[in-house]
């Protein structure tokens, strides 16, 4: 017997990716940035502005898959006092304010220190739908984490890259529940060079694979044009660094809500 809660949660990602839905926008932001207590405000505003999924980053001192912009936001968030427990505290009323699917992204160490079981339990209680843990490899996940994630109904989102073999992609597809995160090129986050022919060939190759799991493209998506290009090959795209940069710059001291709304409207216009 599945609990009511589980059905709701699994539905949130599933509903978001229903077949006729296109150009889904996922926004990544770092919890506790620019200010410690902005976390929930940003999530709420993203929803009202028209984003489709929300990815909240748990800051880490050594984010090896991230470029300078996200590194910097991680550092600021940590200095602001963000931690896993503070984040859970801030999100305790999440589902009273936000109905979009929400994923937590974080490196494995802070999650392990919180306790993997506790972490999953808590995430599940507050209504988190999935987890993205870039340094948790497939093999480890299968052996030691899968059963816990499943127990708490958390979708684990895997990354694939231009160098991921077809066999491995098939395996990832089989294990995936939410969506597959297509890393747009061999790179860390925050590149803004546009999308090359080579990348398009890779997008096309994956688009032509008979995968059961929906896909989103991330890394190097930073404006309306790159977003739309990515959406020709996948159901949606993920923007992180460009959003953080937009929050950071803010020369005219625009209120946070307006800043967030501007960004989303610009991409989805």
């Amino acid at each position: 017997m599945r609990s009511v809660k589980q059905t709701t949660m699994q539905k949130r990602i599933q509903v978001a990716f229903e077949k006729n839905k296109k150009e889904l926008l996922t926004i990544y932001y770092t919890a506790g940035f620019p200010n410690l207590n902005d976390t929930l405000t940003i999530a709420q505003t993203l929803e009202s502005a028209g984003a489709d999924l929300i990815e909240i980053g748990i800051p880490f001192s050594d984010p090896i898959a991230d470029g300078e912009v996200i590194q910097q936001s991680n550092m600021v968030a940590l200095q602001n006092g963000m931690s896993v427990s503070v984040l859970f505290e801030q999100l305790s009323q999440l589902r009273q304010h936000v109905s979009l699917p929400v994923l937590l992204m974080g490196y494995l160490n802070p999650i392990l220190q919180y306790g993997i079981e506790n972490f999953c339990k808590k995430a599940s209680e507050i209504g988190i739908d999935g987890l993205i843990i870039p340094d948790l490899p497939l093999e480890e996940y299968e052996q030691h984490y899968k059963s816990i994630f499943e127990q708490y109904h958390l979708a684990h989102v895997f990354l694939i890259t231009p160098f991921t073999s077809p066999e491995r992609i098939a395996k990832i597809d089989e294990l995936s529940e939410g969506f597959i995160y297509m890393v747009s090129s061999a790179s860390i986050t925050g590149k803004t060079q546009g999308i090359s022919t080579e990348q398009k060939q890779y997008f096309e190759r994956i688009a032509n694979m008979p995968l059961k799991t929906p896909k989103q493209i991330g890394f190097g998506i930073y404006d309306r044009s790159s977003f739309q290009t990515a959406c020709q090959y996948a159901q949606g795209a993920i923007i992180g660094s460009a959003f953080i940069k937009h929050l950071q710059a803010n020369p005219s001291k625009t209120p946070l809500e307006l800043l967030v709304t501007q960004f989303v409207k610009e991409i989805k216009a």
């Binding site: 898959a65 340094d135 480890e140 990354l159 890259t161 160098f163 991921t164 890393v183 860390i188």
Partner: peptide, 8 residues
């Protein structure tokens, strides 16, 4: 414990 980008 490596990101997928380093897997190959």
């Amino acid at each position: 414990y490596i990101p997928e980008m380093l897997y190959p």
